[in-house]
Simulated assay, not measured.
Amino acid sequence: MARVVLFELNSQDPEKAAAFYSSVFDWKIAEPHWDYREVTTGSDTKPGIHGGIALGPSDYPHGTRVVIEVDSLDDTLAKAVESGAKIVRDKMEFDEFYLAYLADPVGLGIGLIQYK
């Protein structure tokens, strides 16, 4: 079973968004890396997930996406497309994981992550 492991908040003004969430919810916001700020929302001893605030790309300038961990990004992408999803950003490689973005059949944006 795949599980939601983080969220992404996309904004055209990530600095302003980071200041808001830090001030209102006391979230810890890391310095930007690749125009992405890691967000810690609380203690790992309580239920919940962490996330990030990113400079929203042109294909998804504003909004929230959940990121779902999968065992095989390639297999999940194929199954998602077969089930009506559209790939927005194909498989990308980072130091510790692979990442892809898609829109489900009703247009909701989601991310898929496979840790190495």
Rank of each mutant, 00 (worst) to 15 (best):
L112E: 08
V39K: 06
K91W: 04
G48C: 09
L108S: 14
G51E: 00
A78R: 06
H50L: 05
V106Y: 13
Y98P: 00
P105F: 13
L108I: 14
Y36C: 07
E38C: 06
H33T: 07
G111C: 08
D35N: 13
M92I: 11
F94K: 01
T40H: 12
I113L: 07
F97C: 01
G84Y: 04
P57V: 12
Y101N: 06
I68F: 00
G63Q: 10
Y36M: 07
E96L: 09
F94Y: 15
A80K: 00
A54K: 06
F94R: 06
D104P: 05
V70N: 08
T64Y: 06
G111K: 08
A85P: 01
S58K: 15
E69K: 13
V106F: 15
L55K: 05
D71T: 10
T45L: 14
R65N: 10
D75T: 13
H33K: 14
V81T: 02
T40D: 08
V70E: 09
G52W: 02
G111E: 11
P47V: 07
V106I: 14
V66Y: 00
V81E: 02
V88W: 02
V66C: 00
G51T: 00
P61I: 12
D75A: 15
V88S: 12
V39S: 04
T40F: 09
A85I: 01
V88E: 11
I110G: 01
L99T: 03
H33Q: 14
G109I: 13
V39F: 05
P47T: 07
H33D: 14
P32C: 02
A78S: 09
S43L: 10
R89Y: 03
V88D: 07
H50R: 13
E93G: 02
P32H: 04
K91G: 03
P105R: 08
G107S: 10
H50F: 05
Y36S: 08
P32S: 06
D90M: 06
K46D: 15
V81G: 01
H62M: 03
R89L: 12
K86T: 15
D44H: 11
E69N: 10
A103W: 02
I49D: 01
V67N: 03
H33P: 01
A100E: 05
P57E: 12
R89A: 13
K91H: 09
P57Q: 15
I68V: 15
D75W: 08
P47Y: 09
K86Q: 12
S43G: 11
Y98T: 02
I49M: 14
D59N: 15
L108G: 13
K79Q: 14
E38H: 13
D44I: 11
P47L: 10
T64Q: 05
D59A: 10
G56V: 08
G42P: 09
K46M: 13
L112V: 03
I53W: 05
H33G: 04
E82R: 10
K91M: 07
A103D: 11
I87G: 03
I49K: 06
K79P: 04
V70S: 11
D95E: 11
V70K: 12
D95A: 04
I110H: 07
G84H: 03
E96I: 10
V39C: 06
L77Y: 01
S72H: 05
Y101W: 14
G107Y: 14
H62S: 06
W34A: 14
I53E: 01
I110N: 03
A54F: 02
S83L: 07
I113A: 06
